[in-house]
Design a protein around this nucleic acid. Structure first.
Length: 430
RNA sequence: CGGAGCGUGGCCUAGCGGCUUAGGGCGUCUGGUUUGGGACCAGAAGAUCGAGGGUUCAAAUCCCUCCGCUCCGACCA
């Protein structure tokens, strides 16, 4: 009575289950592991659900993104998926000949709608209501929202889906100089995001096509054989160029030397580009500058696919036993494995440790399934991939000790229970 | 969108005109035993053989159409 009920995160009641085998149809490592470990469920080709564990990872990734984007002045909104075709006609992006992966639908009255694959058009129109003077600028607006792309061929598990989450940030500035300034900030924010998601060391800033808007855009490419892109990387300068745009002229221009470059397969985890007035002009998103002149707002767009990011992390951080989550985006911080014993005191002690950890803000997944043998729990824990496994067996508990297994190195250390909290907190600090 | 391959309980598959009431293994569920790296025993549930149409006395099996899945390529603003 009067005692607040804590939410129990016990594996015996977690609705997801691990699987030894999944359909041989799923070839890609990321989807195989995420499906086997119970993070996602496949609805159909290119369409996946996030289950309890998967959603926790996704929320952490999104948290990191929000933190970094808010830091550089981003303001979060959430826009609709249903799109009015008239604005897309103004920018010449409604036609299936121009944009071939639209999902289109109709209202009952037969008028056509699109399911958004990006949001420049509706956001530019929206911003007309909020931007009229240079005093209203700059603005940095972003969202983490569902996108639909009717890919002719979904592939690579969750890496190229037909429905997926995207963090899309748009900058609205009064000049190219102001855009350039923000662009550099965004670049740094992206570097921080990938760093925190545990793929910083193998993710490289890459020159890519600027499309019709500008000379180059930048992609963030993570080295992986599962990637669809090919980049040429200067490992010393940590700079790369996408194969799509690599010519001697481009290399000269960006100051890379062909003989220092190595070819790598990579996954595009982020893309930033300067759109200039590509959308503001046709949509008449203008402002009155200090000199009294009407000018188009200068735009930039900055995308990250959190789902693809999750897939990429799994793709580059796994071993023969399963996933190895980085500490920042692990679904739980500790996987507590209670080893079966007839002695009820073991369960009582495990509960006590579990409660202590939770009270200290540690996220614990408690494998309390009593009918399951130790080996099975070990296999499950390795597959799920939480960085620290806390193994509680009767012998150690009687000595006032417990075991900690680090997932990435598979190193096991025995420590005193009294030191447990400190060890865990040290592991997770910074 | 071009090319290729494949659809048999949740997964892997056997059967490829009649010997099938579609068989096995894994998993799942129940009971028991066991309990430190996916144990063992007993029992049970679960499939209109992707869908529709045809050929035939007879179709999971042969033919046609459609749907779905996977891979290669193209595409990826």
């Amino acid at each position: 009575m009067g005692k607040a009920k804590r939410i129990k995160v016990k594996q015996s009641i977690l609705f997801t289950k691990t699987k030894k085998d999944i359909s041989s149809d799923e070839i890609s490592k990321n989807a195989q592991l995420l499906m086997r470990a119970g993070f996602i469920y496949k609805e159909m080709a290119g369409v996946y659900d996030l289950l309890s564990l998967g959603l926790r990872v996704m929320n952490k990734i999104n948290g990191i993104i929000r933190e970094e984007i808010n830091q550089i002045g981003g303001q979060e909104i959430f826009m609709s998926s249903l799109q009015d075709k008239t604005i897309w006609e103004k920018t010449n992006r409604w036609s299936d000949q121009i944009v071939d992966n639209w999902f289109k639908t109709k209202l009952k009255n037969k008028s056509e709608l699109g399911l958004g694959f990006t949001h420049e058009e509706p956001l530019a129109r929206l911003m007309k209501n909020y931007i009229s003077s240079y005093k209203d600028l700059p603005l940095y607006i972003y969202q983490i929202q569902t996108k639909f792309r009717n890919e002719k061929r979904a592939k690579s598990g969750i890496m190229r889906a037909r429905e997926f989450l995207m963090k899309d940030l748009y900058s609205f500035t009064s000049s190219r100089e102001e855009l350039d300034l923000f662009y550099e900030k965004a670049k740094q924010a992206y570097i921080n995001i990938f760093q925190k998601c545990g793929i910083g060391k193998i993710t490289y800033l890459t020159f890519a096509s600027g499309g019709t808007f500008s000379k180059y855009s930048h992609e963030f490419q993570t080295i992986s054989d599962a990637g669809e892109d090919i980049i040429y990387l200067d490992e010393n300068r940590k700079l790369a160029v996408n194969k799509e745009v690599m010519t001697d002229e481009v290399l000269d221009d960006i100051g890379l030397n062909r003989k220092n470059l190595v070819e790598k397969k990579s996954i595009e985890v982020g893309n930033i580009f300067k759109q200039q007035a590509r959308f503001s002009e046709p949509l008449e998103l203008n402002f009155i500058d200090k000199d009294g002149q009407k000018k188009p707002v200068i735009m930039g767009a900055y995308g990250i696919g959190p789902g693809r990011l999750m897939g990429t992390v799994v793709e580059v951080r796994n071993d023969d036993q399963g996933i190895i989550w980085p500490k920042e985006i692990t679904p739980y911080q500790i996987h507590l494995l209670e080893i079966f014993s007839k002695n009820k005191a073991v369960t009582a002690k495990a509960e006590e440790i579990y409660n202590t950890l939770q009270e200290n803000g540690i996220e614990v997944l408690y494998d309390d399934r009593r009918e399951i043998r130790a080996g099975e729990k070990f296999y499950d824990a390795d597959l799920i991939g939480i960085p620290i496994q806390l193994i509680l067996g009767e012998k150690n508990l009687n000595l006032g000790k417990c075991e900690i297994k680090y997932r990435d190195t598979r190193e096991i250390v025995v420590i005193g229970i009294k030191d447990l909290l400190k060890v865990v907190q040290e592991f997770y600090q910074d």
